[in-house]
C-alpha cells in the first residue's frame, strides 16, 4: 500500500507544518514515517515520497544517504546504537561495547540471530554525563538508555524478546 494511503492523517499533519510552496521540507518527517514499520526505507516508499512532495526519487534517495538515522537496508528490528565518542569513551564506553559484543556473540554492525537487535557504534548522543549509554532505534522511535551496564542491557534485550514473542502470539 502506498504511503499516502496508509498514513493519510499523519501526512496531512506533517505537511501542515510547512508553507505549501515548500512542502519539500516534509521529506525528513515522511522518511521517518516510511521507516516506521520495516526499519528502513524501501524503493516504493521513496517513490511515494517523491510523488507526494513533487521532487525526484533521486532527491529523496540523496536525503536518505546523507543522514545516518535513515537506512536503505533492512537490519534488526532494534538498532542498538552505543555512543563511543570521546566523552563516553572517557567513561568506559569502548569496554562496555566490547563486553556487550561478547555477551551477544556478535560484532559491531551485526544482528542477533533472531533478527531482533543490530549493534552499532555511533557518535555523541548528548548524554555524555550518563555513559555508558545507547539509544535504540525501532518501530516506536528512538529511546535513550543511560547509565547502562552489560547486565541491564541484557535485561532490556530479554524484555524486548519477550514483548516480541507476546506480540506474535
Amino acid at each position: 500500500m502506498s504511503l499516502d494511503k496508509k498514513y493519510p492523517k499523519e501526512i496531512k499533519q506533517l505537511l501542515a507544518k510547512y508553507p505549501p510552496e515548500h512542502k519539500r521540507s516534509a521529506v525528513m518527517p515522511l522518511l521517518y514515517l516510511a521507516q516506521r514499520e520495516e526499519g528502513y526505507v524501501n524503493k516504493e516508499a521513496m517513490q511515494d515520497i517523491a510523488r507526494i512532495l513533487d521532487i525526484t526519487e533521486t532527491e529523496v534517495a540523496s536525503i536518505v544517504g546523507f543522514y545516518s538515522l535513515y537506512h536503505d537496508k533492512k537490519a534488526g528490528k532494534y538498532r542498538m546504537q552505543v555512543c563511543t565518542d570521546l566523552p563516553c569513551a572517557l567513561r568506559g564506553a569502548d569496554e562496555f561495547l566490547n563486553n556487550l559484543c561478547e555477551n551477544l556473540g556478535i560484532k559491531v554492525g551485526e544482528t542477533t540471530e533472531d533478527g531482533l537487535v543490530t549493534l552499532e557504534s555511533v557518535m555523541c548522543l548528548a548524554a555524555c554525563d550518563r555513559a555508558p549509554m545507547f539509544q535504540t532505534q525501532g518501530p516506536d522511535g528512538i529511546k535513550y538508555h543511560e547509565y547502562m551496564t552489560v547486565d541491564r542491557t541484557m535485561e532490556l534485550i530479554d524484555a524486548l524478546k519477550k514483548a516480541e514473542k507476546e506480540g506474535k502470539e
Partner: peptide, 11 residues
Amino acid sequence: DESEPGTFKDR
C-alpha cells in the same frame, strides 16, 4: 541540534 561531543545542556 546539540551534537557537539560533550554538550548536553539544551536537552
